[in-house]
Simulated assay, not measured.
Amino acid sequence: EEYTPEDITARAETGSDPLCVRTVETLAGIFGSVAGDLVLSLGGWAGVYLTGGVLPILLPWLKHGGFRERFESKGRFRETMEQVPTVAMMHPEPGLLGAAALAVLDAGKPLVPGA
């Protein structure tokens, strides 16, 4: 039987199909490995911001699955990687929100009213 991505995540969420659960767990782990590799290669020591339309669907597995273990599992760099935060950006338009924040700051105004 062919499954759509929506079918896979729905069945993984309910736990009704072990293969779907394994598929989503594997995807979260690969995501963690790649994110960790990018930190090591590009130097994102201040943190990693996760965004995208699939993020709300994968969030339970990112929180409790292999994401963070695979993110940190970088041999002699493990202790360093444990200090790098990962933040899920759930805003529907994070790029526009960031651009608006920069425009406000560029105008000389504080981001928080009354600050």
Rank of each mutant, 00 (worst) to 15 (best):
E2T: 15
Y3G: 00
D7N: 11
D7H: 12
D7W: 04
D7L: 04
D7T: 09
I8W: 09
T9M: 11
A10F: 09
A12G: 09
E13I: 10
E13P: 00
E13T: 14
E13S: 14
G15H: 12
G15P: 06
P18S: 01
P18D: 06
L19N: 13
C20Q: 06
C20M: 07
V21D: 07
V21P: 02
R22H: 14
T23N: 14
T23I: 10
T23R: 13
L27T: 13
A28G: 04
F31C: 14
F31L: 14
S33V: 02
A35T: 11
G36D: 06
D37M: 12
L38P: 02
V39A: 01
V39K: 01
V39F: 02
V39S: 00
L40S: 05
S41A: 12
L42H: 08
G43K: 05
G44K: 03
W45D: 15
A46H: 13
A46N: 12
V48D: 06
Y49V: 14
Y49M: 13
T51R: 09
T51W: 03
G53T: 08
G53I: 08
G53S: 12
V54F: 11
V54Y: 07
L55Y: 10
L58T: 04
L58I: 04
L59H: 13
P60V: 03
W61H: 09
W61D: 07
L62M: 15
L62W: 02
K63I: 07
H64T: 14
G66R: 15
R68S: 01
R68E: 01
E69N: 09
E69C: 00
E69P: 00
E69T: 12
E69G: 01
E69Y: 03
E72D: 14
S73Y: 07
K74P: 02
R76Y: 14
R78C: 04
R78P: 05
T80F: 11
M81G: 12
E82C: 11
Q83H: 07
Q83N: 06
V84K: 07
V84G: 10
V84H: 10
P85A: 08
P85M: 06
P85D: 08
T86S: 15
V87A: 04
A88V: 10
M90D: 00
M90L: 15
M90Y: 00
H91Q: 13
P92M: 04
P92A: 03
E93I: 00
G95K: 02
G95M: 04
L96Q: 10
G98M: 09
G98V: 05
A99E: 08
A100S: 13
A101T: 01
L102D: 04
L102Y: 10
A103Y: 05
A103V: 03
V104Y: 01
L105N: 00
D106V: 01
D106T: 12
A107V: 02
A107Q: 11
A107D: 14
A107H: 08
G108R: 12
K109C: 06
L111F: 01
L111H: 01
V112K: 13
V112D: 01
V112N: 04
P113Y: 07
P113W: 03
P113S: 09
G114C: 03
A115K: 10
